[in-house]
Amino acid sequence: MSGFLFAGFGGQGILFSGKLLAKIGLAHGKQVSWLPSYGPEMRGGTANCSVIIDDEPIGSPLVTKPDVLVVLNLPSFEKFEKTVKKGGVLIVDSSLIDKKSERKDINSYYIPASMLASENGLEGLANVIIFGHMMKATGIFDYAAVEKVLVDSTPKSKPQLAELNAKALSLGYGWQE
């Protein structure tokens, strides 16, 4: 079983990232669940969502000890960094979070996703950039399959957005510290 937690501010595309991952799992014939945090904290405050990908039926949809944590703001880093499972993966948007994990028992990756987005004309797609980096770091799914689901998830009425999404994914996937 793999539990993923995406966390950041409302509006950063946290829920979209989670949905994208769940759709990728579904496309691979896995059991998947997606659970958002909902309520007042979604309005400008912290937003997060739990995604589970498993071969067996999923019990609790709530991820409290993530195998993979993706954080896009400091409050989320401080709240969830300590909950990552031993041997797990932490992915940090280092252009928004000026802090590093001191944990030696997890693998941490830092990518200035928001800065890369604005430098490359990919405003609002930091979530996809960091998603690409997560795919690389975890290596759980094949890149081409992920790209296909991402493009399919983009509204048909906005073909240019599909192209930008693919570019953002590729940028994050190929980026090296």
């Binding site: 949905k19 769940a22 998947v32 669940s33 997606w34 659970l35 958002p36 909902y38 949809p61 709530l62």
Partner: peptide, 10 residues
Amino acid sequence: DGALGQMMEP
């Protein structure tokens, strides 16, 4: 309940 209402599954 709220969890079943809000969560997504296939």
